[in-house]
Design a protein around this nucleic acid. Structure first.
Length: 113
DNA sequence: TTGCTGACCGACG
DNA sequence: CCGTCGGCCAGCA
């Protein structure tokens, strides 16, 4: 198994593993990937992911404040919120309600091989 | 190679 | 509270 893919591929896999009804932050993913201070790369990877065909639930990824910063990149400012609400995540004022409780750390609930 | 950009984050004033 | 700056790394002209 290739451990070193393009860093987007790595991001995609992590994001796809986000459980339903959970959210995570760019910084958390970045840190998990070892990019710690470079959360920008994660967001950039998200942009690339939405551009092409993908099953990456980028709507489950928000910024550190739980704000839906990338909502405009879903083709509409309301798309992201609807997607989140569709999964049971309440969103108010572009922010995830009880974000702390919905927060999911990459690898935390993953099974150790 | 250089320079610019980016869905971020943290620090500073 | 708000604006600004630096850092971080990858892609592209």
């Amino acid at each position: 198994m290739p451990l070193k893919e393009s860093f987007f591929q790595n991001v995609y896999e992590v994001v796809e593993k986000i459980p339903c009804g959970r959210v995570t932050s760019y910084g958390a993913i970045a840190e998990y990937l070892g990019l710690r201070g470079s959360a920008r790369m994660v967001g950039w990877a998200m942009t690339a992911s939405h551009a092409g065909k993908n099953n990456v639930p980028a709507h489950r990824v928000v910024n550190r404040n739980g704000l839906l910063t990338g909502k405009h990149h879903f083709g509409g400012p309301k798309v992201m919120q609807q997607l989140l609400e569709s999964e049971g995540i309440q969103v108010k004022d572009d922010r995830v309600i009880e974000f702390e409780k919905m927060f999911w750390e990459p690898g935390k609930e993953m099974v150790k091989w």
